[in-house]
Design a binder for these strands. Structure first.
Lengths: 233, 233
DNA sequence: TCGTTTTGTCATTCTGCGGTAACAAAATAC
DNA sequence: GTATTTTGTTACCGCAGAATGACAAAACGA
């Protein structure tokens, strides 16, 4: 990961005190902090430059944080940007709702800047994005988003559009379980209504694609939870 | 979190009024409160018994709170003890300084007991249980709730859903006996009617799972009481 | 336009897991 | 010592959830 690059973080929060505190902590940790007080301002800021990560308040004046998250997931340009939700009073229902909307993590108020930074780093590490050329390499597979191609070693892997997106998501979000619902949000894009079982089918197709290269074991089933991409058996 | 374990909290504060108020609130919340008026008394109290959490006033007669925090961080015995700073009129510079000294959180005076308790619980949840990344490590086992996986060293442990939940509960509630009924409540979820004997079977299955890694001794039977997860034989 | 590829859904099969009963073994009481 | 309670272990069944294959509609390309 390009760690020497200044990470660009967008804070969407209406409470000035929290916003300032977080911005200060981020800058001190060597990150670049932008801020927006509501969803509209956030969208404007994102339009100018796509941040590396978004800190999103649950409750916002006007469009709620969760709605903004959904909208960002729909847009091709912002689908991959990791989102951390800032929520007051962590209720399970909220939690699930947030994760279903494709949120990567959430932090419950009141939080310390230490905890927030730890979560940011964790999410960044997990979602190790592509390098400058848009190439991700993992588990013996290489995915080249510029060329829109997948390789196993030197051999090109023939893969369909949806399987490609699915694999791309997995490879940039490895070592973590995702529910079918989450996968639909991330890979298909929020707001699309598709049966959950459809994910099974595409998982099957992805495995079939990777089978000739003996890489199908990378896509793992977690019974009762969802699917996971892991280099470890 | 319904922990019936009495948490031991040390309050280091020279103002009697605040000290009493906090102590009262803590006891009311089911925690055990000790107090010290200055750094010297604090160190004496810690020497007698290491608390689960320390509430530390910023301004103290003699050695300042921040210095005491630094000293506690240096000592092997007290390094892991979470500290919450009590600071008057939060100036940014002070805040950051406190966080830098390894303080886990801070509360600005005047504060409500409600806020203080919320912060204490948040810090405890993070310290006692999972860290920010959702990883618990104990007895040579590592459980990663994000990946929904268990490791013994570098080797992944193949484990079923219920055994996973059971182990997760045990590892976040170690060194304490739980009756079968309690385990059913916590692991299976309240309101489910299941035979108590079922717990036995799953304990057996968990032990079997851990056997190849010689970690089955961690799950201990307490005859007439229930089961316990302990790193000590 | 026609053929090919892709995609979503359904029906079916299959598998792993959870729960329970039944018996063996151990601990405790008498 | 025996009787009784408590726990360990195994075997079995039912079922929910997952895998799989087939199919039709839609998208795409030539």
């Amino acid at each position: 990961m390009g760690d020497s690059v200044q990470k660009h973080i967008l804070i969407v929060e209406d409470e000035t005190a929290i916003r300032d505190m977080v911005a200060f902590a981020l800058r001190k940790a060597g990150m670049e902090a932008m801020h927006a007080a509501d969803a509209r301002a956030a969208q404007a800021a994102i339009g100018e430059r796509i941040p590396d990560l978004i800190l999103l308040d649950w409750m916002l004046p006007g469009m709620s944080g969760i709605d903004l998250a959904r909208r960002l997931r729909k847009d091709e340009l912002t689908r991959e940007v990791p989102i951390i939700m800032l929520t007051a009073r962590g209720e399970e229902t909220d939690r699930v709702g947030g994760l279903d909307a494709g949120v990567d993590d959430y932090v419950v108020k009141p939080f310390s800047t230490r905890e927030l930074l730890a979560r940011i780093r964790a999410v960044m590490r997990r979602t190790h994005g592509e390098d400058a050329e848009g190439v991700v390499e993992l588990g013996g597979l290489r995915i080249d988003s510029a060329a829109h191609r997948v390789f196993c070693g030197e051999q090109p892997v023939h893969i369909g559009p949806t399987e490609y997106r699915l694999l791309h998501f997995f490879m940039t979000h490895a070592e973590r379980v995702y529910t079918r619902s989450q996968l639909l949000d991330h890979v298909w894009g929020g707001g699309v209504y598709v049966e959950e079982r459809t994910v099974d089918v595409h998982i099957r197709r992805l495995r079939k694609t990777l089978e000739p290269f003996t890489r199908d074991a990378l896509v793992q089933t977690v019974r009762g939870a969802g699917y996971r991409f892991s280099t470890r058996v």
